[in-house]
Design a protein around this nucleic acid. Sequence first.
DNA 1: CCTCGAAATGAATGAGCATTCATTCAATAT
DNA 2: ATATTGAATGAATGCTCATTCATTTCGAGG
Lengths: 249, 249
Amino acid sequence: MTKSPAPLSKAFDQTVVKSQVTNEKLVLRRREQIVAAAVELFSDQGYYKTTIQDIARKAGVSVGLVYQYAQTKEDVLLLSLMSVLESYQREIPRAVHADADPLEALWCSLSTYCHVIDRRRNAGVLAYRSTKSLPRAQREIIMQLEVETNEFLAERLRSCIAAGLFRKVNVDLVTYQLVLYAHTWALKHWRLSKLTTIDSYIEQGFDFFVHAMATPAGLVHYGQFLSRVGNKAKAAKRPKPRKQTAAAS
Amino acid sequence: MTKSPAPLSKAFDQTVVKSQVTNEKLVLRRREQIVAAAVELFSDQGYYKTTIQDIARKAGVSVGLVYQYAQTKEDVLLLSLMSVLESYQREIPRAVHADADPLEALWCSLSTYCHVIDRRRNAGVLAYRSTKSLPRAQREIIMQLEVETNEFLAERLRSCIAAGLFRKVNVDLVTYQLVLYAHTWALKHWRLSKLTTIDSYIEQGFDFFVHAMATPAGLVHYGQFLSRVGNKAKAAKRPKPRKQTAAAS
DNA sequence: CCTCGAAATGAATGAGCATTCATTCAATAT
DNA sequence: ATATTGAATGAATGCTCATTCATTTCGAGG
């Protein structure tokens, strides 16, 4: 067996989708090109309204080439969904010092998750709209990815409990509430954006979660945290100055 | 203007979809028949994989007849989504004494919402999967319905605040969290069902929400509430013995 | 037991689109 | 130069439906 180029996890192994082309480097580059177009189109128009012809045109390649790098349209969807979930799994841990103050790490995780979602809201909704369009086996890959992504958040929660800041809640369940809180920003953006901003949404949400779980000691700690970030608020709310793909604005 | 037969709200006005058939009674009956089939098929297979031929067959009518009661396939989807959302708006208030103890009314609302979702989980997911398949105007009808449905929950929250049981939270935002908590049971059932049961899910969720918002007085009240329902737990968790469509089991 | 309009039928139409494959292109080896 | 082979192309194929409409059935009134 050839060793894959350090996939983030077994579930991210792109080789579940077969390619006619043998040059591995080329496969990665072409697929990136195709998937970038596909994610945008799927996100905007949905899976079924998007044709392979559309994707090929937007990617600047021929229809036939798409079929050199994926066997079916469903494969393209799978690669697209994997790409979106992978970006979550990559970006969130990068913004968080896992060994920092547990409460701050949790804040930073939620904040980053929400901002990542906000940056590509339609992509965030894509999984909800389209996962059922995949055959069972492929759907399970996506579910596995989601579980893995959640694990990082779960760890941040466990740290808060271990530090005596939170009472012993059901971590798996609360993790899903945190995840859904982030996703909700995309799912219900048409309404929520009329009620608040993303930064206020994050602040109110975090406040809510802390109150739901904090011990007395945790509440004190939270108060200190608030006065700390109160000063450098702007900085804390934007944990990363967002890597630019190309030129600066 | 003919007076419609007491629609729950302007948004529920079925006349947004035009019918060739003039007999109003007949339109209602036939549409019920068609929509019942459509909801099931859309829920199981999704909008695009479901054909009008499928719907007609399952409803026991001809293809042409479907087009007598709706002008396009999108119309059928709109009617289907309306039917699902209407069932929420109908069933939740029915199970709740709005003038009872505010905390109990909130519990009952959340519990009923979750149970209603649980009873038809695929239908619950339908809106998330398919709303974007509608043209803007129709999509807005669905959004309006959702906002209206949420309003009942929002009122229960306001009562708790007015009674001094909850602190002054952002009602609109928390309402969405409650709604999404119920929806999440359907959206992530593949995972959550491995972690807990619906009844435990409701209990844990309610406990979480109460801790997030309760005043000291509210917490005392919640303790009393817990010991009260602790006795008649089974009854409280199933607020309605579920109307049977036909024979008893 | 006719008549006539509303309801219901389902075969036929035609547009849209996933997938294929004969052909061309380009790079490397001979 | 020329042969070989992996990549890339995009027109052609064939199937799947949404929608239509010519025809049939139904039922109330005469």
